[in-house]
Design a protein around this nucleic acid. Structure first.
Ligand SMILES: [Zn+2]
Ligand SMILES: [Zn+2]
Ligand SMILES: [Zn+2]
Ligand SMILES: [Zn+2]
Lengths: 146, 146
DNA sequence: CTTGCCTCTATAGTCGCTGTAGACTGTAGG
DNA sequence: CCTACAGTCTACAGCGACTATAGAGGCAAG
């Protein structure tokens, strides 16, 4: 049962050292053991935990959802419907964003094909940006950040 | 030629008062006239300018691109290829994100259908999140923020 | 005149990290 | 042993694109 320093953990999990400490500070990672001189020492379960977090974050799960799923894992004998619900919510979110992005793509494409070169003051891209009312109604709303 | 206060401009353009002041502070909006008591006074061109900014931002154009396009509008007799290039770049960006999101959607869908209910410790959603190596290789990378 | 909303400036907070400074620790070579 | 150098520690500042707050002053209607 060897313990590893934060640097080794960082490499093992593909998560930066500073980020690991940050996760600890926001209580996503529990407090690790410490060496006599105060350095953090981790076991293999820390790699697992970090992979879980990174994978979920890469899939776009919000921090809060990650936290909930981690909490749920501490009660392994419970029903997993809660996990399921979180994942479904995330899927719905991704789909919403897809729809939005598709509308954006359409409008950008239209803008670009409308511009046939020429001077800035007659450019269709500029004029479209100046006047949203020309747009397909509600084709795009303010974009949610992802 | 009536001038309006920042509150009226805010309503006319659908941009919050604080955001207008913020845009001024980062030099996206020029300094407006002031009343004798120091209140900002705007003309109609400010509404236009704000609409332009909002529309571009809603379409996902980065701040820097918006700034460039505004600068280009000050030289209306120039060739609009620069505008075109910025829009094409933005389109490419949107398409990249679309691809990424589609991959995400696929993986989330797969995760969810794999889970057939049961206990947390055997849940396929959890186990998939714990072990990325099960994933379709490189199906998703760290998500760029939008 | 008072009420109530508007505007002003300056500053801090948001999220999810990332980077820095300045001090200490651990290890390998000479 | 000494010296280098890489790793680690804490604490705090910075990012982008706003948003919110505090505390002061302005303006029009009743
Ligand atoms: Zn053009
Ligand atoms: Zn539009
Ligand atoms: Zn499940
Ligand atoms: Zn995956």
């Amino acid at each position: 049962m060897t313990q590893m320093t934060i640097g080794r953990l960082s490499k093992a999990a593909g998560v930066k050292v500073t980020t690991i400490r940050y996760y600890e500070s926001i209580d996503l990672m529990g407090e690790p053991d410490r060496s006599s001189s105060g350095q953090r020492l981790y076991g293999d379960e820390a790699v697992q935990r970090l992979s879980f977090i990174r994978h979920a974050r890469d899939l776009g799960f919000p921090m809060e959802a990650v936290r909930e799923m981690i909490d749920l894992q501490t009660q392994p004998d419970q029903d997993c419907t809660a996990v399921d619900a979180i994942a479904r919510e995330q899927l719905a979110d991704v789909r919403k964003r897809l729809t939005q992005l598709e509308a954006l793509e359409a409008e950008l494409k239209r803008m670009i094909t409308c511009c046939e070169g020429g001077r800035v003051d007659t450019c269709r891209i500029i004029s479209t940006l100046n006047d949203h009312s020309e747009c397909i109604a509600d084709a795009h709303e303010r974009l949610s950040t992802f």
